[in-house]
Amino acid sequence: MAQNLAALRVKIECDLLGRASAPFDYRERKFAETASIGIPEIDYLAGGLPRGGFTEICGPPCSGRTSFLLSALASRTAHAEVCVLVDGSDNFDPYSAQAAGVELKQLLWVRCRNIDQALRATDLLLQGRGFGLIALDLSDIPPKIVRHVPLNAWFRFRRSIEDTQTIFVVFDQEPNAKTCASLVLQLGSETARWSATIETSTEDSFAYPSACLLDGFDVRAEVLRSRVQKAVVAGFHLGFAPASIGGDTGIFRTKAVWNGSDNLLFEPQSKRLEKRE
């Protein structure tokens, strides 16, 4: 029996000669190089987005996926990388992207009409090589349809970007890529923040809608799966204390584009005191 196994092993090795160097050897996982996406909380939590790896960002509508996407695009295009957005349902807004700092000239936007077009376009782009980031946005495609994407499609995507410098990110409502994904982040929205203008900074400012401004909202991020080794990523500031609420969970804040300042105009007095302390 043992002799037969040994003979079989030798035969397989001979047959695969030139195609696989050592088919029975354990393939050591290479250290995934990661890239910052411009959100320190996510960089701290997940170690950044893996290059040559498959990242899946999922969450319901209004959970911060687009803010995440814009931040990633802004970060990569600022480094002169060529980025692609495969827009599954043509919902991308160039105005908010530019306000978020995305260099639109570095962005190839593929506006698809359905998921089939989006998957085929992604296939072509992954074969093209050389892109810094490829984002497949299936956020507004119903989960029932995305669930029907065969697993081999995700597997093919994963294999296509292996050993490349490309970051591949899929945005959808629930995790679908299973083990193909190197990093899966679940996003969920927390409270929305509204600020009042100077003239009407009263307790019941919501009674006067013209006196309010949408300031942004908080996003809770949870790591569902990660094969990425955390490393000190570029752009991480020393002394930063993430608003983490658990080992694999963190919270980050988005700000409306008209509120470019880091400080809220009207924070409650108690919160200001807390901050100083």
Partner: peptide
């Protein structure tokens, strides 16, 4: 907006983006 021919720049990195300014994303219905 309009769609223009994709001709990415091949110059040096454009700028160092401030990481603290995370803009709220917006998705348009068309």
């Amino acid at each position: 907006f309009r769609m223009s021919r994709f001709a990415p720049s091949r110059d040096e990195p454009l700028k160092n983006r401030k990481s603290s300014n995370l803009a709220t994303g917006f998705r348009a219905f068309r």
